[in-house]
Design a protein around this nucleic acid. Structure first.
Lengths: 371, 371
DNA sequence: GTGTTTTCCAAAAACGATTGACTCAATCGA
DNA sequence: TCGATTGAGTCAATCGTTTTTGGAAAACAC
């Protein structure tokens, strides 16, 4: 019993079967030949196509790439795989890749520089046509060195001062959160941000801080955290340990916001009466937890990142882009809203003209079957 | 300014610089040559190595694969990317891949057969050495056709009756959940399962149903759902709409369990006094929500799936494996437990001899960091 | 009948590496 | 001293395509 997959038919086999040269086979089977009929008679064309179909021929992507030095492949560097945010971005990238008959190869870097470098080089070894980084660090110079080697790439989600990127309007998002809380009469703000190397947290905090300052309120306390549930809980516990605790918290990631809410609930403090909470990304979890959250179309950001990269690959000039953000108000800041668990019509408030589409609540519900 | 990345140094360049043939360069630079010294004098060896380092030489993975017809690459088919479950499995696969100097290419199939086929063939076009499917459907025959073409593959997470797979002990897990709830005196059970083609939901439900029947209790109501938050909410609302509602619910995915809990909270029912809830996977979210949950070492499952595949590739006989599951009791079933938000020491109860390691809350959890 | 264009196709050189089979010394064994 | 071994490499074929060049035969122009 043969184990290897090496029995793939080749153009040579088709050529032998039809009685033409591989040259002709290649020309006919090559989809982007401008003039398929220009190279063979109609009979030859159909003969080749039939033989190809009968043998189950498929291009050998490796051989094609080697010959053309274009792999129709892009690399995507993600900080983690499995996160709602990176997954949404990736799905946008993947959509565009498919539209262009390309493949998106991913690798996760865990935000560790050595792993990122290793992974990037591994992708380049596979001759990816370009790379998208979703894990840029504000202060790194790895990207500069890549740029100097003429590796085409774009950034997405997290920006770097010197390179083209597609980001959310993070500063505006921070302001939006602050203005919302200020409008509710909150006075003592806190921000749960991320590590300092992430532009997302830094920019959102900055926007928030600016808006609070402009309102003449005391400067918010800022926590740099790892932006997960545990980190949110830890931060909230720290705040409770040193009163007075804030009456409004802006977490730059829903996960941290959930950690915050979970702690508040257990010490018997009311959300939003005692503490209002605003999160980020509007994850499915946050609507279940009725968390007010800011969202951005991550899928669209991914799309744009690859579209820009492709433009760059066809030698066009490209520039950074900023995507609008939306605030969706729920009961974690406004108790007067109806409970979403029964009636999911929260009101989106947009920083721009766009309105966020609401998730479809009337999803197909499978049979209520008893076994 | 040149845009393409085609300036990669080749062995030919090194050969020219050192003054030897590419053959010699290849022999020296090839790590797995049995006798590196057998082919060149020490001076030549160092000369070649220096030249390689100086030029920044890296193997052209495509050329190597084409020649050797071994790509050192495996394909991983995931139902979705971005889910906690698939991400954990993938990370295990990726770890093993790295240990073996291989690359794991992923593709998501959204559980759609056509997309799965398309993606699989695309991976095969890149001459992956083997494939791991994390998205098997119980009833599909696609896998059979692949097997008949001698494509080496293994399954993980979801099983298929005819192929080698690494799964959780799903039946035991269902029993474990049932026994726990029965032990708490619950009488009216419900199960929120997944689509019928997923072995995970089917097996877990079956184990649960069996244990309930053995205890002489009425058969549980079973909901086939999409296993997300919304589906959990929908199911719970449906149950409330047709009394009597159950006093214990087993959801085969934490997300659905959270949907359930969110609805219960909003109608003023107490968890666990009115309804006990057990989830699955013990996601970070579930510990924040104090959800009793069953877990399995998804990372280890991923590891084993690739290890088995590699064994298969070296022509060893391989067999399916089942991984033990663990029940972690929290306040969603047992109100007497201390609140985890302050003191995170939940008690694991294992279906086998193993005890699940508790997440280390004091150390920085790199892997779980979000954006 | 001759020149020109079209139609249809093939030869052969790449792409960057690997590998079995050689070669050509120098050294060794007895 | 003669054959055998070892050391240090090279040659050339090959993996499966693409692409440049070229060219025979047929069709057409005049």
């Amino acid at each position: 019993m043969p184990t290897r997959i090496n029995q793939r038919p080749t153009q040579r086999q088709i050529a032998a079967q039809v009685g033409v040269s591989v040259t002709t086979v290649s020309r006919i089977l090559n989809p982007d030949e401008s003039h398929p009929e220009r190279w063979a008679s109609p009979e030859t064309v159909t003969a080749i196509q039939q033989a190809a179909a009968q043998l189950g021929y498929r291009h050998n992507a490796l051989a094609v790439s080697l010959r053309t030095s274009r792999s129709q492949t892009v690399g995507v560097l993600l900080p983690v795989v499995g996160d709602f945010v990176t997954a949404s971005i990736y799905s946008g990238i993947d959509d565009v890749a498919r539209e262009h008959n390309m493949t998106a190869l991913t690798a996760s870097t865990l935000d560790e520089p050595v792993l990122r470098a290793e992974r990037t080089f591994s992708l380049l070894d596979h001759l990816v046509d370009g790379v998208i980084f979703a894990d840029a660090h504000l202060d790194e110079d790895f990207l500069d060195s890549l740029a100097s080697q003429c590796v085409p790439f774009t950034l997405v989600h997290r920006r770097h001062p010197d390179h083209v990127c597609v980001t959310a309007d993070d500063v505006a998002a921070g302001r939006l959160a602050a203005q919302h809380l200020i409008g509710l009469g909150r006075q003592r703000m806190a921000v749960i941000s991320g590590p300092r190397f992430m532009s997302t947290g830094v920019d959102r905090s900055q926007g928030f801080i600016d808006a609070v300052a402009e309102a003449g309120l005391p400067a918010p306390t800022v926590f740099d955290s790892d932006l997960n549930v545990q980190a949110g809980s830890d931060a909230m516990r720290a705040m409770l340990a040193s009163p007075p605790y804030p009456d409004a918290i802006f977490a730059v990631h829903d996960a941290a916001a959930l950690g915050v809410m979970s702690v508040l609930r257990h010490v018997g403090l009311s959300v939003p009466d005692d503490v209002a909470v605003v999160g980020f990304y509007d994850t499915p979890m946050s609507s279940a937890m009725e968390l007010t959250s800011i969202s951005v179309d991550l899928n669209a950001m991914g799309r744009r990142a690859l579209e820009l990269l492709l433009a760059r690959l066809s030698d066009q000039q490209i520039e950074s882009e900023v995507c609008p953000v939306t605030l969706t108000v729920r009961r974690s800041t406004d108790p007067s809203l109806p409970s979403e668990a029964h009636d999911s019509t929260a009101q989106p408030v947009t920083s721009t003209v766009r309105r966020a589409p609401r998730p479809d609540v009337s999803s197909p519900q499978r049979a209520n079957r008893a076994l």
